[in-house]
Amino acid sequence: DEIHIHFNGVTIEFRGLTEEAKKALEEAIKRGASEEELKELARRLIK
């Protein structure tokens, strides 16, 4: 299970995320999180 985020022309790929983690990332994107914020969020979620 993986998710691809297209962000300002950059694709960020995450693997092994739970549904909750995906929802958290989607919410962050909707509120306009920066690419760095998304990566940091993903790091926290994957652990």
Rank of each mutant, 00 (worst) to 15 (best):
E36K: 08
G16E: 10
S34L: 04
E37N: 02
R44G: 04
K47L: 15
L45R: 00
G16F: 09
E26I: 12
K22A: 07
T11K: 07
D1K: 10
K39F: 15
L25N: 00
R31T: 06
H6S: 13
R15W: 12
A21V: 14
F7S: 05
R15K: 13
V10I: 12
D1T: 13
I46H: 07
E27F: 08
A33V: 13
E36C: 04
A24S: 08
E26T: 11
K47H: 15
E40Q: 04
R15T: 13
E26V: 09
E27A: 11
A33Q: 02
L38G: 00
V10N: 10
I29T: 04
R44E: 15
R43A: 14
E2P: 11
I5E: 03
L38I: 13
E27R: 09
L17R: 01
A28M: 04
F14Y: 08
E26L: 13
E36M: 07
I12K: 01
A21S: 09
L25F: 11
H6E: 13
I3N: 06
N8W: 07
G9M: 01
R43M: 14
E13D: 07
L25G: 00
E19T: 11
I46A: 02
L45V: 04
I46V: 05
K23W: 11
R15I: 12
E27Q: 10
E20C: 05
L45W: 07
T11V: 12
G16L: 06
G16W: 07
L45E: 01
A42E: 02
L38V: 13
H4C: 04
I3L: 11
A21K: 01
R43W: 14
H6W: 10
K39N: 07
A28F: 05
R15V: 13
I12W: 07
I5W: 09
A24R: 07
L41C: 01
G9V: 03
K30L: 11
I46C: 14
G16I: 03
E35Y: 14
S34E: 05
H4D: 04
T11Q: 08
S34K: 04
R43F: 13
I46D: 13
S34I: 01
F14Q: 01
F14L: 09
K23F: 13
R31L: 10
E2T: 15
S34Y: 01
E35A: 14
T11N: 06
E40V: 05
H6D: 10
E20T: 11
E20Q: 07
E26Y: 13
L17Y: 05
I3S: 06
I46F: 09
L17N: 02
E19W: 11
R31G: 10
I29Q: 06
R15N: 12
E35K: 07
K23Y: 12
F7D: 04
E19F: 10
G16A: 07
E40K: 02
K47V: 15
E37K: 02
I29H: 10
R43S: 09
G9Q: 04
G32R: 00
I46N: 14
I12R: 00
K22P: 01
I46T: 04
A33I: 12
L45Q: 01
L38A: 01
K39P: 00
A28W: 05
I29R: 06
H4N: 06
K39C: 09
A28D: 00
E26A: 07
H4W: 09
S34A: 05
D1M: 14
F7W: 07
T11C: 14
E19Y: 11
R43L: 14
E13Y: 12
E26R: 07
A28T: 02
T11G: 05
R15G: 09
R31Q: 14
I3Y: 13
A33Y: 10
L25R: 00
I29A: 12
R31I: 05
E36W: 08
L17I: 09
A21Q: 09
E37T: 03
A33P: 01
L38W: 05
K23S: 10
G16H: 09
A42I: 15
E27T: 08
L41I: 11
S34F: 02
A21P: 00
L17V: 07
A33F: 06
